[in-house]
């Protein structure tokens, strides 16, 4: 069982197909798989559908794949930070499916857990509910949302061991675990790969069963809103 690869390009070799659905972790620019995104750009894979909470900014994160017109459709909850995204969306070049953030996270979690659909109150009475099955439970109305199974998941973690057990750091965890679980194949990039046996098994956030390929590298970790108080 070899999960550790030398580069993002190696780790994605044989996994990329035009028209595929990719699930990506990250919230804003925090905890995004920046090396794998850059490698997908370099590979030139086209007509991608991407499920990710956000769409990066113009020159970083998933914004890189928008610049190169590799994305056909985004499934996201919030895309406000990306001018190129808006341009392509308004000109009809890019499809966009808005999902409420919690529904998006649960769609990934459910897909990864073998649950094809779930009922939620979120979105009842809004445009999100249009065309979806409604069902009452205990005098409350719910709508049916589908689990997502992606062709490929790309995620970012803090540390991994060689078997793919992952640890995340602070709020960089965000969508990475649910995104990892919903892919038929998951590639993770981490800041450090440590020898198997050196991580406390009680502190593993995502077991390696969900992670098929791994790379280690340096991350830019760009900050969107640098806010400080006086020292």
């Amino acid at each position: 069982m070899k999960k550790v690869y030398d580069s993002a390009a190696d780790a994605l070799d044989g996994l990329l197909d035009d028209g595929m659905l990719i699930a990506s972790g990250g919230f804003g620019l925090c905890g995004i798989p920046e090396m794998l995104i850059a490698a997908i750009r370099d590979a030139g894979t086209k007509n991608l559908s991407i499920v990710s909470n956000n769409a990066g900014v113009d020159d970083f994160g998933l914004g890189l794949l928008l610049q190169t017109r590799q994305v056909k459709k985004m499934i996201s909850s919030y895309v406000g930070e990306n001018a190129e995204f808006m341009r392509q969306f308004l000109s009809g070049e890019l499809e966009l499916e808005f999902n409420p953030q919690g529904t998006l996270a649960e769609r990934m979690r459910a897909g990864g857990a073998g649950i094809p659909g779930f009922y939620t109150r979120t979105g009842v009475g809004t445009v999100i509910a249009d065309g979806k099955e409604h069902k009452d439970f205990d005098d409350e109305t719910y709508i049916l949302e589908r689990g997502i199974v992606a062709d490929l998941s790309i995620v970012k973690a803090w540390k991994a061991d060689e078997t793919g057990n992952l640890m995340f750091r602070k709020t960089a965890r965000n969508f990475n675990p649910p995104a990892a679980t919903c892919g038929k194949v998951c590639v993770a990039e981490v800041e450090e790969i440590v020898p198997t046996g050196s991580m406390d098994p009680d502190k593993i956030h995502l077991p390696g069963i969900y992670v098929h390929r791994l790379i280690q590298g340096a991350h830019e970790k760009r900050i969107e809103q640098r806010t400080t108080r006086a020292a």
Binding site: K170, Q225, T228
Partner: peptide, 18 residues
């Protein structure tokens, strides 16, 4: 909010502020 020395890109709120 952090002081300049405490800024951590892995630690943001839902408004994406450090």
């Amino acid at each position: 909010f952090p002081t300049e020395d405490e800024i951590d890109p892995d630690l943001i709120n839902a408004g994406k502020q450090t």
